[in-house]
Design a protein around this nucleic acid. Structure first.
Lengths: 250, 250
DNA sequence: ATAGTGCACTGGTCCGACCAGTAGGCTGCA
DNA sequence: TGCAGCCTACTGGTCGGACCAGTGCACTAT
């Protein structure tokens, strides 16, 4: 009695098919960042749907960061270069909805920064080293200035290390997690007592990381990076979560 | 002549304000997964906008995985539990658009699995150990069966380790990257010559990781996890990228 | 040649309509 | 009284048309 095997069908909305087609064109490179989509009124002709349907599809694509439309632009929606903005949004959402603790985020940063340091020590070029040195110099210069300048320089350093590690995934995730952690903890840290001492220690730590990277000592760079993140944030993590962080310090 | 400082204004679309409000309600917990939104026709009343605008907002929310609507459902759109689906989509997009290489992905897996192993060794409970043992047993049982059963068991093992590590971010990222790598390399690996030998070695490696986790030896678990991923995929990574992978093997 | 104006076109929003589903109440039969 | 089946009110998906406020470009007048 068993006839041919039938598969369950999924009704797929018109706007989804449009999203699929445009998405595919972008992913495959047929549409490059900077190029323009036809106008909504053109698209409704090409896809044989109404403008509402085209617009819903464009909203989805825009929500994914693939295109951007601007009222009055006579050239249609513009294909955007990939940015980690969406990745960041997903992770931020995860952090808020799933109730991710600061501890977990800091822990993840320790993992990522350590990996970046490890890789950077093996793969860095002189150019990368120069960037890191410049960033550390900027940190020293900004030590007496405001907290904003200092952390900008710090971010530049971590970014240089991540770039030197040559792993875009590590790089982007580190960037995303860093910005989330900063959002969560910035006020607290800026207002923390003994900021000057913390700043000095932070500079020393970064100099040590730089030295390890320059020496090509990956494991050392990794350990120092982890320690640096830990020192910076451990005070703001609930005491109960700290053992889990220390687990990463071998 | 310098009057009061004016700030640039950003025109914000109506549907964006709707997205913001509903998103905020979900993030803050005012709307929980399983709850229903009012119908589109109700929402257009509550927000004082047209249905098109409400629908564009819902499309965005749906694209972000926060909400799901079903035609004919008399209860309105349903708030969805958070899933890493969006995170996965972003990463997949990154992989395709930015031309992420298999090498980078494998490298990232090595980092994540190692961290999961390290954390699991310190934080695992007996329950977690039991799950891992069951997974390894399933791997042994599936060794002679198809590749699908085997890799399902393998995934279960890695998942158990990640859960034992108690870091949701590591867990989810590992899951996402694993699935992307599998998509990219599954066919190749299933068809690789000497699969039986590879399978045996894979089982041995996983047993070693399990032993290290049971013994609470974090660094060993981390090293073995890295090695396990490397062994599994190195053969499929272009030779030029392999040194970067070996950089992680100390 | 250039400054200024107007036009054609864009996206954002609104409205009203129709269709195909679904759930739940209602009716009628057993 | 119990249940099967129909009916209806409502849902989301799609359509078409309309208006508005921006934008860029070509054209015009200087």
């Amino acid at each position: 009695m068993s006839g041919p095997r039938f598969e369950p069908v999924r009704t797929v909305r018109a706007y989804e098919r449009i999203v699929e087609q445009i998405e595919e064109a972008i992913e495959s490179g047929a549409l490059c960042p900077g190029q323009r989509l036809p106008s909504e009124r053109d698209l409704m002709g090409q896809f044989s749907v109404s403008r509402s349907t085209v617009r819903e599809a464009l909203r989805v694509l825009q929500a994914r960061g693939l295109v951007r439309s601007r009222p009055g632009d006579p050239h249609g929606a513009e294909v955007q270069p990939f940015t980690p903005a969406e990745l960041r949004k997903s992770m931020t959402m995860l952090a808020r909805v799933d109730g991710l603790s600061l501890g977990e985020l800091v822990q993840f940063r320790m993992v990522l920064d350590a990996s970046a340091g490890l890789l950077a020590a093996r793969l860095r070029t002189d150019e990368h080293l120069a960037e890191m040195e410049a960033a550390v110099a900027a940190m020293r210069a900004a030590a007496e200035a405001g907290h904003d300048e200092f952390s900008a320089a710090e971010v530049a350093f971590h970014d240089a290390v991540a770039r030197a590690g040559r792993n875009k995934l590590v790089q982007i995730c580190a960037e995303v997690v860093r910005s989330i952690v900063c959002d969560l903890a910035a006020d607290e840290i800026a207002a923390a007592p003994g900021r000057a001492a913390l700043t000095r220690r932070s500079i020393r730590r970064h100099e040590e990381v730089l030295a390890a990277v320059r020496a090509g000592d990956g494991p050392l760079a990794a350990r120092l990076s982890r320690q640096s993140v830990y020192d910076h944030y451990a005070g703001h993590v609930p005491a109960g979560e700290r053992p889990a962080l220390r687990a990463l310090l071998e």
